[in-house]
Each structure stands twice: as structure tokens, then as C-alpha cells.
Design a binder for these strands. Structure first.
Lengths: 240, 240
DNA sequence: GGCTCATTTCGGCCGGCGCCGAACGATCGT
DNA sequence: ACGATCGTTCGGCGCCGGCCGAAATGAGCC
């Protein structure tokens, strides 16, 4: 069967040594920082976690060897990023707690869009925060997404993504990664769209200039162009 | 929002200390053993993991305090089991490696049912092994399950579960737990049905005497009654 | 070449924790 | 009431591994 698993865990000791990668405060902080989906240098991570550069080196070595991170050397810098969406997903699952799929669409009562969109950010490669939740909810209201019993893309949703948003149909074929997947944002305590569709949506929003990154972190803000686009595509009015 | 998360993790040290619960060979072995969904006594787990009873006591205390396990004291016995399906799911995710949703239904080519059903077992609260995979595949072939881009129950599938199998419709309402969910069995390297529907299906099969537990472990075998039932319900013929 | 800066390697320190055995407590069966 | 069984508490041992600082490496930049 396909390639080989990045982290093929079967025995108890394999499972233990895998968990041990996260079971350190400093390494956990590194993983959480890397959830922004971008590549950090070793020095940045050392400063961010408050340890000496030499200590960070050791941690990064373990994380790369363990398959959680991949590295990219450029000149005198060593960039690391999460090895892939599935790693990000797993860390999210662990960080978000044990609760999978809580009360899904219940109480989906519309918060006003202006309030809902005020704080947005990216979560690995998809939209999160109030923005992510608002978009997810709007898609559900429009019948593009089905939240009853796990996330699923409706036929209308597929059309909306391709014809409406311009996502290539090829990218929405089933593959290693789930087409749609819920991701629990633990600041909002609400589900938002992840998976391939979530990533494509985020990519498109950024590419079209509908949302723009704020500063160097994970935060994003909605642009004027984004306001009109969201209105046209999702009836999300009264946007901040 | 609802109760409170069993393991509300937000900071790096919370994440680390949570992962540390699994990051020990003995505790990992305990969790894997408990994946059968049943309650074990402290002594059984001590013997199974090969440590002294006193050592097992310490580990179990940590796992219970950490929210991974719940305990049930009966007389001089202390039974522990996984705290819930979401805990089981998370351990599965970690144990199965990082790869979520690999090539889903691809190569769903029918292995003969007799071969497919030879080795069955339960995985927490649903069917796994060749039996679980065979049932999942058969359901997919019949259009009861949609494996394109994540698992989803089709309208036909819902009817099949309720009218055909006698599962109460009430139980299939969206709740905290996903209605359907794929679970990767790492011996078969194939996806099989988990989530509420998977648990209900397994429960019904056991209740109807279609499968029976073998010995004291996770293994199950199909009964003669099960053979006819699977033929009638899923066209799964040539059963072992 | 010489300087700077990001990163790495090496030693050594120290705390945490997994392990056991022995003694104690609690419960069941007779 | 009595031994047998299951579980827990307590001390003590030993090792793994995270931390740092100092020195070494290697890539850019004059």
C-alpha cells in the first residue's frame, strides 16, 4: 500500500515514544507555534519558547527524526515546519481536548456578521477564529455544508467551491486527506471547516485578497473586497 | 457550553502533560489494551503489561487523574476503562500513525467474503479487523455509506440502519459524537466504520447473536445466524 | 581574508519518574 | 473468625533527558 506512513505506530513502545515527542513543555510549545502552518527558523523557536539555541537544536532534531517536522535549510538558516496537515490535525485533536464532534450545528443562531468576523486567524492552512466559524456557519445555512453527524460537503457545496470560488475540481477528489473535516477552535469552542475544502477556501480567500495577514502571526483581517465577496457568495452582510 | 471538556488543553504545558500520559511504554500498553472498550481490573493490566501491581496502581492513578480513564470500584476490584469514545478515537489516531484518511475507497475490489470475514474483532465499541472492513466495504457497495471525501451516511444508509437493522432513529441524531467516522485498522491498513453508527451496528450484531465474542479478548467470530443475516442484509455471501 | 551571526556539538549538572519489594488495608469465601 | 486474594502506600534505587554555557562549525558579507 501507498508510500509508507510517516509515523507507523503499532506497538506500545512506538506509541509511547511518539507521544513523548509532544510530552515536553518546550516541544509542545514549538508544535503549537508551528500550527500557523509556516516555517520558523530554529532561532525564532528558541526565542519563542524561551530556551537556549542549543537546547532548541536538540528538540528540533528529535521532532524531525520523529517525523513531526520537516526541515528546509537555506543558507545559514534552518527552517522547520509541520510535516503535513495530518500532523497539524493530530496536534489540534490533542490540544483541543478529547471532545470530538460536540453539539454540531445546534445553536447555530446567527450572530451578527459584523461581530462574527471581527477576529479571524488561520489554523494551519484553513480559516479559524470568528471568521472561520462565521464562514462555516454561513455555508451550512446555505446548504453547502452538512453538519448533521460529522461534516460533509453537499453537491451544492461542491458546485459552489468550483463554479463560484474557482477551485479546480481536480483538487476536490478524494485523496489521502479528508475532503472536509471539522476542526474545533478552542477559543470559540465552535467547529469550523478544515480538510482539503477548508484549505482551498483559505487559499482562495488569501489569493483573491479577501483576507490579508496581519503582522507576522496567524491573525488575518477581512478586506473591503472580502466584505463584498462574502456578501455576494454567502449572504454574509453587515461585515466589519 | 455543555459540561466541560474532560481534558481542556490550551497551553503548551497542558498539552505536554497530557501527552506525557501516553508517553510511557507501560501506560501506552494499558491504553492499547483498553481499546477493546471493556473494563479491566488493575491486576489484569499489571499482568498484561508485565509490571508489579504497585507500579500499575501508580500508572492507573495518573491516567484516571488525567481524564483518560474512569474507574469503577466493585468490592476488592478496581475496574478501569477508557473515559469515552473520544478518548479511544484519539488513541487510535495516535497509534494508527499520522496519516488520516489515506486512499479511501480505492481498490475496494471485493475480496471474497469468506476470506474477508475470517478474522474479526472489536475496536473499542465497533467492529474491526477483516470483518469490520468487509461490512464497511459491503455497505459502501450498496450505497449505504459514502467514502468519497470522508465517511458519510447516505439517506439509504440511515433507512437501512433503522428499518433494516432496527436501530432506533433517536440514536442517530447528531450529538457530541460523530454519526459516522472512519477508523483505520492498522493490521488491515483499511478503513472501517466507527462513530455512533459503527457502535450501534456492532451492538446490534452482538445483541442478535450474529457475532459472538471469542474467549476473553477482543476477538469475535461470526455465527451461522450472522452468516444468513449478512447475506440478506448486505449480499455478503460465501461467508466463513 | 576577517568579521558577524545562526546553528551545532560537547560536558556536566540536576530533577523527575518508572521500577521494585515489603508492609498494610480491604474484601471475599468458608 | 480465619486465611487468601486484590489493591494500595511507602522508601529507595537508578536512569533518562532537559537545561545551560563554552567552544566549534559554516554561511554570508565586506
Amino acid at each position: 500500500m501507498s508510500p509508507t506512513y510517516s509515523v507507523p505506530v503499532t506497538s506500545a513502545s512506538d506509541l509511547a515514544s511518539f507521544a513523548a515527542l509532544i510530552a515536553d513543555r518546550t516541544r509542545a510549545a514549538m508544535c503549537l507555534a508551528l500550527l500557523d502552518g509556516r516555517a520558523w527558523t530554529a532561532g525564532e523557536l528558541a526565542a519563542h519558547t524561551g530556551v537556549a539555541p542549543s537546547t532548541a537544536t536538540g528538540h528540533l532534531h528529535r521532532l524531525v527524526t520523529g517525523g513531526l517536522l520537516v526541515e528546509l535549510r537555506q543558507g545559514r538558516h534552518r527552517y522547520v515546519r509541520l510535516a503535513g496537515p495530518s500532523v497539524a490535525q493530530l496536534i489540534e485533536d490533542m490540544a483541543g481536548g478529547i471532545a470530538h464532534r460536540p453539539a454540531p450545528a445546534r445553536g447555530l443562531r446567527a450572530v451578527t456578521a459584523s461581530e462574527a468576523l471581527r477576529r479571524g486567524r488561520t489554523c494551519y492552512d484553513h480559516l479559524a477564529g470568528r471568521l472561520g466559524v462565521a464562514v462555516t456557519d454561513a455555508m451550512t445555512r446555505r446548504g453547502l455544508l452538512d453538519q448533521a453527524g460529522g461534516f460533509a460537503l453537499t453537491p451544492d457545496g461542491r458546485i459552489w467551491l468550483t463554479a463560484g470560488l474557482g477551485v479546480e475540481a481536480e483538487r476536490l477528489r478524494p485523496g489521502r486527506r479528508a475532503l472536509v473535516r471539522g476542526c474545533l477552535d478552542w477559543t470559540e469552542r465552535r467547529w469550523h471547516l478544515a480538510g482539503v475544502a477548508g484549505a482551498e477556501l483559505c487559499r482562495t480567500f488569501l489569493a483573491n485578497g479577501w483576507v490579508a495577514r496581519v503582522g507576522t502571526g496567524r491573525a488575518v483581517r477581512i478586506t473591503p473586497a472580502g466584505t463584498t465577496a462574502l456578501d455576494a457568495l454567502l449572504d454574509l452582510t453587515d461585515v466589519d
